[in-house]
Each structure stands twice: as structure tokens, then as C-alpha cells.
Design a protein around this nucleic acid. Structure first.
Length: 290
RNA sequence: GGCCACGUAGCCAAGUGGCAAGGCAGAGGUCUGCAAAACCUCCAUCCCCAGUUCGAUUCUGGGCGUGGCCU
């Protein structure tokens, strides 16, 4: 189950799990972290009591969790769900996680090296490019993109060249059905606006402050996520409380569009509109395929 | 009413007598894989009128508008 943020994917996945005897494997790079619940849009306690969820709420928010960690955990969860005769339903927003999982990307699993990153962060792009090309003359990464160049250097230092040999795909031992949820942009935008205001009203700022107070660095991936990044800016005095939900909604709109662009190029996806209720259509689609 | 300043894209904002930086927002796109990140592409004839000039967004005059000060 894929699609843009704010469209109600998790609710549909929940209903689907209830009807089909399924369990949900969330594919979301921020929901994995513990304690930050509000802006990560984790399922409600009621939902979690009714359906079993995997890959949420289990990583120390001060640490860094990446795709390789995700795929390893999600594959295990899916195997586990299968072994109990239940249906795994992957639901999520993080495009790379879904693709890495369903297409079986070979991921190096090279863990982040904070010291190296700090050192490389001081270099300009040209210097970074030189460092990378010294390690691998044909790395196959976007040389204009410092984040990718740094990561490539990090991987090469740990795993050795050439980088390209580390990038293969081995499909998982199961089939997947990609269901996309969509709606008019105006509808999505309105929902995101409402959701952002709601999150602030439910204590987003306090939740963010609690995380910071407990030692989660502002640079931690969770706190750079939509909602938290803006809440941190607000706590620093860079955004007023009135501006906060507006800034959040804007970030969400940008993200939703990026998600839409990502998935619309993927021919595997079968799309369903959110109104009227897409559940009957999805159920028959899924039923027909099983 | 007088004086001063300003008037550049949806917003912020440089700038020059010779075909208008940048940032944000917006649109499109990338993705061999840190991804709610990062990167790439696109996006204006400079308030109006007249004048000076080979040529004005840039100079001069007038108008309109905005802000400030004064009475």
C-alpha cells in the first residue's frame, strides 16, 4: 500500500488487515523510532490493539536507522507473518524502503561513520568528488549531490571498490501486489493542513522538547522529519506557533508530491481513489490476485 | 498640507545606461539505494506617462501607490 502522505493509507491498510487476517509491516523511515508518535503518524493504540504492527516504535531515536536495517527487519517480519499463516501488508510512505524491500536491493549495510562524515562535511563538493574518484573512478553516483558522494566514500572505505559490484538486486521469495492510493491534490492539501494543525494541538511541541531534553540531537533523523524539524525551529524561536502548522503543511505538500512522482512512474502500482471508499475495490483486486 | 525614503517575479531581495544576482514558494525531474534526505531543470523585460539618449529597469520631470517624519 503506497501513495502520498496524508491520504489515509494507514487507515485503509488497517481495514484491509482486519478483513484479510493480515498484519501490517510499516515501511516508514520515521515510524521506526520510539517515542516520537505525533508527527510520525504512528497507528493509534486502538489500531495497534486490533492489528499487529511491525517495524514501528523500536529504534532509539538518538540513533540512525537506514534502508539496510529496514529491509533486514522487514524481511524477517514478513517471514514470521507468513509462517503463522497470516497475510503481510506493507504500508508506507518511504519510497526507497518499499522498493528496496520488494525488489530486493543488495544493500551494503555499511554503518554510518560519524567521524568520517564530520571530516568530509568540511570539504566542498569539488574536494569530495576528488576523494571519491580516487577510491573508485567510476562510482556511478550523482557527483553533484554531496550527500550521495559522502555516502559513497563511506561505503568504499569500508567495503572497497568498485562500488558498482555492491549494487545488485535479488527479488524476495514472495510476490507483492502494489496498491496505490490517490486523490486530487486539493483534497490532499486540505487533509495535510488539517493534520498539521491537529498535530500541533495534540502536543507536538512538547513531544519534540521532551525528545531534545532526553538527549536526542536535533540532527537525529527523526527530528529532521516533517513536523519535528519545524517544531525544533519553533523551539529555537525561528517560527512562531502560528507559523508552525503552516510550515509543516508546506513540507508535507512537497513530500506528498515527491511521493506521487515516485510512484506514478512505477508500472507495478494499481491505483485507487480514496473516495468513494476504496476498500471494496481493493478487496476484489486483492482477491482476484490470490 | 509639507519634507524624506521607497516602488524589481506570489513573497523576500541584489543590481547596472547596453538585453535583471540570489533565496523562498511553485512546476517538472533524478534516484544501483543514508531517502520525511539530497541533487538537477524551469519560472520577470524592473508601478504608469513623458523626456534625455544610439540605447533606460538604471538619468530628468510629472502621476499614482506605500512607509516615515513634520505641521
Amino acid at each position: 500500500m503506497v501513495g502520498p502522505t496524508g491520504i489515509g493509507k494507514s487507515q485503509v491498510a488497517f481495514e484491509l488487515a482486519l478483513r484479510l487476517g493480515g498484519e501490517i509491516v510499516v515501511a516508514d523511515s520515521r515510524q521506526v523510532y520510539q517515542r516520537l508518535d505525533i508527527a510520525t503518524n504512528k497507528p493509534s493504540p486502538e489500531q495497534r490493539a486490533a492489528v499487529r504492527y511491525h517495524m514501528i516504535d523500536f529504534v532509539d531515536p538518538a540513533s540512525i536507522f537506514n534502508v539496510a536495517d529496514y529491509v533486514a527487519g522487514a524481511r524477517q517480519a514478513i517471514e514470521d507473518i507468513h509462517s503463522r499463516g497470516r497475510l503481510p501488508i506493507v504500508e508506507g510512505g518511504t519510497m526507497l524502503y518499499v522498493d528496496a524491500l520488494t525488489q530486493g536491493f543488495s544493500l551494503t549495510g555499511v554503518p554510518p561513520d560519524p567521524a568520517l562524515r564530520a571530516e568530509l562535511a568540511k570539504l566542498d563538493l569539488a574536494a569530495l568528488q576528488m576523494r571519491l574518484l580516487e577510491l573508485d573512478p567510476d562510482p556511478g553516483v550523482d557527483m553533484q549531490n554531496p550527500v550521495r558522494v559522502i555516502r559513497a566514500i563511506e561505503i568504499l572505505r569500508a567495503a572497497g571498490a568498485p562500488l558498482r559490484r555492491l549494487r545488485t538486486r535479488t527479488p524476495p521469495p514472495w510476490e507483492s501486489l502494489l496498491i496505490g492510493l490517490q486523490a486530487d491534490l486539493a483534497v490532499i492539501d486540505r487533509r495535510l493542513d488539517e493534520r498539521s494543525h491537529g498535530q500541533v494541538a495534540r502536543g507536538l511541541v512538547a513531544e519534540t522538547k521532551a525528545a531534545l531534553d532526553s538527549g536526542v540531537p536535533p540532527s537525529a533523523p527523526v527530528l529532521t522529519g516533517i513536523g519535528y524539524a519545524e517544531a525544533v525551529a519553533h523551539l529555537r524561536g525561528e517560527l512562531t506557533l502560528a507559523e508552525l502548522p503552516l510550515a509543516m503543511a508546506r513540507s508535507n505538500r512537497q513530500y506528498a508530491r515527491r511521493q506521487l512522482r515516485w510512484w506514478r512512474r512505477d508500472p507495478r502500482v494499481t491505483w485507487f481513489g480514496i473516495e468513494p471508499d476504496p476498500l471494496p475495490g481493493i478487496l476484489s483486486h486483492v482477491g482476484g490476485a490470490r
